[in-house]
C-alpha cells in the first residue's frame, strides 16, 4: 500500500479540483435561473417590456382625426389600418403627446403593393395592370389624382 501513495495524492488533487468546480458553479448560476425550467425566469418579464408597443391600432387615431377616421371607417379601406399606409403611432405620439410628424407614403408604389395585378393575388381582390390602368406617366402620387385613399371608390 505504501507504494500507492502517489495514487492517493492525485486522487486528493482531483477531489479538490472537482469540489472547487462545483462550489464555483453555485456562485455563477444567474439568480432566477431554473425557477420555471432551465432558463432565466427574469427574462420573461424583461421580454414583456423589451420595447414600447409601436403600433396602436386604427382606433387610437380617431380621437384627434375624427373626420378622416369616420370617412375611413365607412369606405372601402375600412379594413386597412391607418398604420399600414402611414407609420406606427409611436413615430407620431409618445406618452400621449405629439412627438413627431406622421410620415405618409403617397407614391403609386404603395397602392401597387396591394392593387397591382400579379400572380398570387386572389382573383376577387380589386387589382389593375398598372401600365394599362394609368394612362398618364406612372410616377409619384398619380393614383391620388383620381382615388381618395381614405374612402376609395373603384
Amino acid at each position: 500500500m505504501e507504494h500507492a501513495r502517489h495514487v492517493f495524492r492525485i486522487a486528493l488533487v482531483l477531489l479538490v479540483v472537482i469540489t472547487a468546480i462545483f462550489l464555483g458553479r453555485g456562485f455563477l448560476v444567474p439568480r432566477s435561473y431554473g425557477t420555471f425550467g432551465p432558463y432565466r425566469a427574469d427574462n420573461v418579464a424583461e421580454q414583456m417590456k423589451i420595447r414600447p408597443p409601436a403600433h396602436a391600432g386604427a382606433a387610437s387615431c380617431a380621437p384627434c382625426h375624427k373626420a378622416k377616421s369616420e370617412a375611413h371607417d365607412a369606405g372601402g379601406h375600412k379594413a386597412v389600418s391607418c398604420e399600414v399606409c402611414h407609420a406606427p403611432l409611436l413615430r407620431h405620439v409618445t406618452n400621449g403627446t405629439v412627438s413627431g410628424k406622421m410620415p405618409v407614403d403617397r407614391s403609386f408604389t404603395l397602392c401597387a403593393r396591394c392593387h397591382r395585378r400579379i400572380q398570387g393575388r386572389p382573383d376577387k381582390f380589386p387589382q389593375v395592370i398598372l401600365e394599362q390602368h394609368v394612362t398618364s406617366k406612372l410616377e409619384g402620387a398619380v393614383c391620388l389624382d383620381c382615388h381618395d385613399p381614405h374612402s376609395p371608390k373603384p
Binding site: 408597443p53 409601436a54 403600433h55 391600432g57 379601406h77 379594413a79 386597412v80 389600418s81 398604420e83 399600414v84 406606427p88 396591394c114 381582390f125
Partner: peptide, 11 residues
C-alpha cells in the same frame, strides 16, 4: 394587444 403583423393585416 395583438401582434403587429395581425394588427396591420388588411385582409
Amino acid at each position: 394587444l395583438k401582434p403587429a403583423c395581425v394588427e396591420v393585416c388588411p385582409t
